[in-house]
Design a protein around this nucleic acid. Structure first.
Length: 445
DNA sequence: AAAAAAT
């Protein structure tokens, strides 16, 4: 039984990086994929659930296969979004930390192209790229891929559908003798038929844990709401998730902006990300979410695939995803690396019938999320108002009407209960741990 | 129809 990376053929130098990264036991798909990539023969198509370590499954063996005697680009990894490209790049750097001789370059869009062109004039072994920018660099004759040994498509089904034209253009400048490695969590029939066109060697199909259709760590729930109460139900849910991290998916960029604004008004620790924001803002928000400076990420499907953030305990589909695969990818942002997570889908009455289709297609069973009663919703609104007042600078007028409204909401509580509720809510939403409430220790003179 | 990906 191979229960260590060394048993799979991973060299000592990379194992030290894994120890540093707190990765000890290879996942099922890593056990199958790593030896297959290291054997230097076949092309591979890897199908494995979200959050099962696909990046390490190709990253580790590729790093080991790089010939440091040569100074040409030997491996190319393509990803569908800049954020995912950047994440893969950062992961590879961490895997390779023990061997700084391996040079890895990120060629994603949204950043100045000139420095990338300059960088490509010196030795590069591995490139991680988004397709648009790479095609641009190819057209500028700034990159040489004619000696490439390994061609990796992450999120392969997306790359061969939405980004197929760019992938085809890239294929024209890489050698036919290269090995091709495709990775995905979802693979529709039409894409499956296409895959063969991209392979040049004998193809091995690898799968792990695909016996069950659904991801076992995800608790799927749905809730039916009237359009008018949709936001309030969400706000109540988010209040119950104070101190946890989650991603809320919307269908359009405009809806993301609108919801993010509403969350900000209600003083939730949140940020928005979608394709019409500048890359600077996208990077800043992703960074804040990764570092835990914000708890809630409101996103379009830009963040649906591949994004790996620690301790995301829930995902909300504020609008139904367009496809079954999109549901798999969105919900797969939680319950990663063996953890558990909740995927809550918010529906309107006329969409309830769709749930049965999702269950049938994806082999999952949805539980019904019990919507908060009117009383709890009202109470939560009151708490949110109170929180706004806590967080708003003094001297702002609070109308008598407003005071009266809050009094009505909480009239059934005793003074002690009210103080307790307000404090509990305020402290939880601000993630203040008790240590911060203690008198700060004086620094030594 | 919308989202992503080049400037």
């Amino acid at each position: 039984m191979s229960n260590q990376f060394s048993d799979l053929g991973i060299q000592e130098q990379f194992q030290q990086s894994l120890v540093d990264l707190n990765i000890s036991v290879p996942t099922a798909i890593q056990k199958k994929t790593i030896p297959m990539v290291l054997n230097q023969k076949e092309d591979v198509v890897v199908l494995a659930k979200t959050g099962t370590g696909k990046t390490a499954a190709f990253g580790l063996p590729l790093l080991q296969l790089i010939d440091l005697e040569k100074d040409n680009i030997q491996a190319l990894i393509l990803a569908p979004t800049r954020e995912l490209g950047q994440q893969i790049y950062v992961n590879l750097l961490a895997f390779a930390s023990a061997n700084p001789k391996i040079t890895i370059v990120s060629l994603c869009g949204g950043t100045p192209v000139k420095p990338q062109i300059e960088r490509l004039k010196s030795t590069t072994h591995i490139v991680v790229a988004t397709p648009g920018r790479l095609v641009d660099l190819i057209e500028r004759d700034a990159i040489q891929l004619n000696k490439l040994n390994y061609f990796v498509l992450d999120e392969a089904d997306e790359m061969l559908s939405a980004l197929k034209d760019e992938v085809d253009a890239i294929l024209k400048v890489i050698p036919k003798s290269r090995r091709t490695l495709l990775f995905t969590a979802t693979m529709s029939g039409t894409i499956k038929q296409l895959v063969q066109n991209y392979m040049s060697k004998h193809v091995v199909h690898l799968e792990a844990d695909m016996e069950t259709l659904g991801h076992l760590g995800i608790d799927h729930q749905y809730v039916v709401v009237e359009p008018i109460e949709k936001l309030e139900v969400l706000l109540h849910f988010l209040s119950s998730k104070a101190g946890e991290r989650g991603i809320i998916f919307c269908k359009t960029k405009a809806a993301v902006n609108k919801l993010a604004k509403n969350l900000a008004i209600n003083k939730f620790s949140s940020g928005a990300i979608h394709g019409s924001l500048t890359q600077g803002i996208r990077d800043r928000i992703m960074g804040q979410f990764r570092e835990g400076h914000i708890d809630i990420l409101v996103a379009t499907d830009l963040a649906a695939r591949g994004i790996d953030v620690k301790e995301v305990s829930y995902v909300v589909n504020y609008h139904l995803p367009d496809t079954y695969d999109a549901y798999v990818h969105r919900s797969g942002r939680t319950a990663r690396a063996g953890a558990k997570g909740l995927s809550l889908t918010v529906l309107q009455q006329e969409e309830v019938a769709d749930i049965a289709d999702f269950e049938k297609e994806l082999g999952i069973v949805f539980k019904t999320f019990k919507k908060a009663d009117a009383q709890s919703i009202e109470e939560n609104n009151g708490l949110l108002w109170a929180r706004k007042i806590f967080k708003t600078k003094p001297n702002r007028d609070v109308s008598e009407d407003f005071k009266a409204k809050i009094k009505t909401i909480f009239h059934h509580l005793t003074k002690e209960e009210l103080v307790d509720k307000l404090l509990t809510n305020y402290l939880a939403q601000n993630s203040i741990d008790n240590s911060k409430l203690e008198t700060p220790k004086k620094r030594k003179p």
